[in-house]
Design a protein around this nucleic acid. Sequence first.
DNA 1: CCCTGATTCGC
DNA 2: GCGAATCAGG
Length: 237
Amino acid sequence: MAWTDERIETLKKMWEAGQTASQIADELGGVSRNAVIGKAHRLGLQSRPSPVRPNEARPAEAPAAEVRAEEPAPTVSEARQPAAARPVAAVEAPTPAPAPEARPAAPVSADTAPAATAPAPAAPSQPVLRSVGPGGFVRQSPGEQQPPIAPAPPRRLVPAKPSPEIAGKTSLLDLSDKICKWPLGHPGEPDFHFCGEKVNPGFPYCVAHCGHAYQAQLPRRDRRPAPPLPFGSPRGR
DNA sequence: CCCTGATTCGC
DNA sequence: GCGAATCAGG
């Protein structure tokens, strides 16, 4: 299966939307999870919170930078480079892939001191802008915010033939950095789509949905019994 | 065990 | 460029 433009496009969108490699591979079909990951890396897509490797280079062998002196390595000593100097200047995303059925609301801790311990790697490529949204939320760093999308879209998302239901709606494939990624409806349902409004600059959502997504933690007393759930109540499957 | 993503390396 | 094999953490 070749990586056509559309397939690459889908891969990008889904990857950025926080879908797992498995889900992406599943959706694309004809490719393995590894293929997706490999492709994603080749495309230079940002890595997402990986279960592995918060650690320094493995105690593996041959930590020294290889001095390729035209020497045909005699034995396959199998030296996996620590790859310390990988292009991963990426920012760590404390918010792992949003769990299915999870709600994006109230990510703000009670202490309201997000910046305090913030390691803030200050990626050179990405401006560490710290803006304040309508809800009084603070932007931590680009990439730290993950859209609340992810509940594994069932098969056939929006392949090539959009159904009449989603015509004119913002589908996964329509997502971009400029439009609100707030999900409306339930993944898998015919009318599932995304908000599509212009984003609140620096955020994955429009101003209105930022207000929903980023709410300061209120004292329990004042909290509403039923907080807004972008994905509605949990549903079995 | 299952899952995840990262990395390597033969093709 | 591709992706299976492999690794390593949850």
